[in-house]
Amino acid sequence: MSTQLGVWIAALCTIFMYSYLWRDNPLFKLGEHVFIAIGAAHAIVMGYQNIVEMAWRPMVGGKAYMVLPLVMGAILYTRFFKQVSMLSRIPIAFLVGLAAALSIRGALDASFIKQVASTMVPIKNANDLITMLGVVTTISYFFFTATARSGPLRFSAEVGRWVMMVAFGAAFGNTVMARMSLVIGRLQFLFGQWIKIL
């Protein structure tokens, strides 16, 4: 058995959480609440350090306009005061605008043009052909306006659905290993570092 305090605490945390697999119980509840508290505290600490490093120090150091994001961040808290609570929509609107534009950038480039481009390759063998047809039929599954869902497109959409099912099954099967590794990791910790029989 380990003699280190840290290992013991970690082992208890592990066992508390695993106890949920049997049923919800006080040990799991304790673990859950402590976990959420540490997680929230860690987020606050990181957030605080971000504000200090990214806004406060530059502002004090001469970049006076950094007061703007600081004020906007502070405005988020107006939601606790009824008369001015609607002001908190402004920083949210800022974040939303940023996210919408970034999403369009990402979707246009990485998810649309790049994906289309990498499918347009010379067909040298059966695999290339299957990939190309697989992409096209899957796309056809997503037509929403109903006129497009008749005749050959209907058939294509059905093929697309098959392709997706193969992909989903494969992704599921492929992930099992990664997830098993996680339990193996915990077992190696419990029986290797804590009880020391491995």
């Binding site: 043009i113 190309m132 037509f143 497009a148």
Partner: peptide, 30 residues
């Protein structure tokens, strides 16, 4: 969005056929 899908599927088909036939200009352009 549906038109976008027609375009995507269309240029994938046409682009691949052209590239296979030795005319890769569409895939190079995109």
């Amino acid at each position: 969005q549906d038109y976008g899908k027609y375009v995507a599927a269309g240029i994938i088909l046409v682009g691949s056929i052209l590239a296979t036939a030795g005319y890769p200009f569409l895939s190079q352009w995109i």
